[in-house]
Structures are given as structure tokens and as C-alpha cells.
Amino acid sequence: MTVAQPIIRLDQVTKAFGASSAGASFKAVDRLDLEVGSGQMLALLGKTGCGKSTIFNMIAGLTEPTSGIVTVDGRNPFHDFDAFRGKIAIVFQNDRLLPWRTAVQNVELGLEMLDIPPGQRNETAMHWLGKLGLLGHEHDYPHALSGGMRQRVSIARAFATDANILLCDEPFSALDEMTGRTLRAEFLKLVKENGKTAVFITHSINEALEIGDRIIVLRRPANIAIDLRLETETTVAEKDEIRQKIQNVLAM
């Protein structure tokens, strides 16, 4: 599927792990073509270990593809290091909080990189901690927070930088049903109101159907099995059909 204005482009991207000289390399991503349009809310589904996080790492410029080209906003995210400062925010699969920083200091991390003055930094961080229901815990160290609280701190850390591209690796998986629903709605609003582009990984078909406006299901090793768009007028019956289709692919 081609997109009018792709902001993220993967062109025949392969990522292999392991010593290539030994010949025992393992392909996590296999000749993947993917274009994500500006303003899209893309849900990425796929079995565990199919290479979803690896795709994120390549888009974020944390790893280099073995072959193929990744471009974000027309640039190479791995080599153009400074150009992407403040442009991409990532919610990692595990919270990755710095243990020597309190909750609020962790949220301020990205803002420090953008040279935002301390007062304003604190204000923004507290705003996001409040939105995620963490007020009263801002001075706690990560080891004193629960798993779900840590995950929410890491969501706050990513969103606080106000980046235009959001990559979220199962952001709502460690949360209870109610909190998850509230945050999904908040996330959807944030992305749609500010014209951001978001790619989120999920294991929940319902979550994908609820907030995604495009769903991609991956095979293992990662390449596209299903790529479909949801319109606002997609009916419940059509959604059920889509759900069935996705389940069939994931069951393979």
C-alpha cells in the first residue's frame, strides 16, 4: 500500500543477528517494505519474537539495518544523530527508568536533552505525571514504584518531549483495564489533536481495532501479512470480520 506523504519509509529492510561469517545469522526482519503516512495511527501486530521491537529500533536509529534503507522525514535515523533530537519519542517495551533518578527526574530526561530551562522542565514533567495519575509519587525512586507505575512514568517521559513521531512498544500492557482504557483514549486524543504520527505495537487485537486507523499484521520473520485501514465508518460487523482475519494469520 502506498501512502501519499510517508514520514517513515522502510525499503527492502532486512535485519539479521549473529555472526555473519559463521553463517549462523538469524533474520529477525526479512525484506520489509513499509510506509507510514504523516498523522497516521498505525497498530503493529504479530506473534512474539517476530521482530516488532527490532523494527522500532531501526526506525528510532538505535540499530542499523543489515540491508535496505530506513528513512524518517527524509533522513537516515542511524547516521543523522543530531537531526532527530526531540523528533522521535519512544515508549520501550520495558520501562527503562534510570534507577538513580526519581520519577520526575526521569520524566525530565528528554527535556534536558532539548536544553529546556529547569523550571519549565519541572512544570512539563509534573503536568504529565499528573495526567498519568502519578502525583504524590514524583519523588519516588523507580524501585519504590509498581510495575504499572513505572510503565506510566516511561510513557510520561516519552510524551513530555512533544515529539512528532511516537513509537510505542506495548505501552498499555502493564496496566489494569480501566487505567489502560483511559490512557488509550488520552493517547488517541494526543496524536489526533496534534497531528502526530504514531506506531504502536500491541498483542491485543481489540486495542488495535479501538485506536488504530491502520493495522499491520506481521509474519515471522517480520514482513507484512495483512495491511488494512480502518475508517470511522467501519461497522461492528466489518470489525468482527477483520478480527477473524487477523486471528487466522496469527494462528498460522
Binding site: F81, R96, L109
Partner: peptide, 9 residues
């Protein structure tokens, strides 16, 4: 953790 920090460039 290093990669997390690096993601903020």
C-alpha cells in the same frame, strides 16, 4: 538504559 538515553539524542 544506554539505548534509552541515546534515543533522546
Amino acid at each position: 538504559l544506554t539505548e534509552m538515553v541515546m534515543s533522546f539524542r
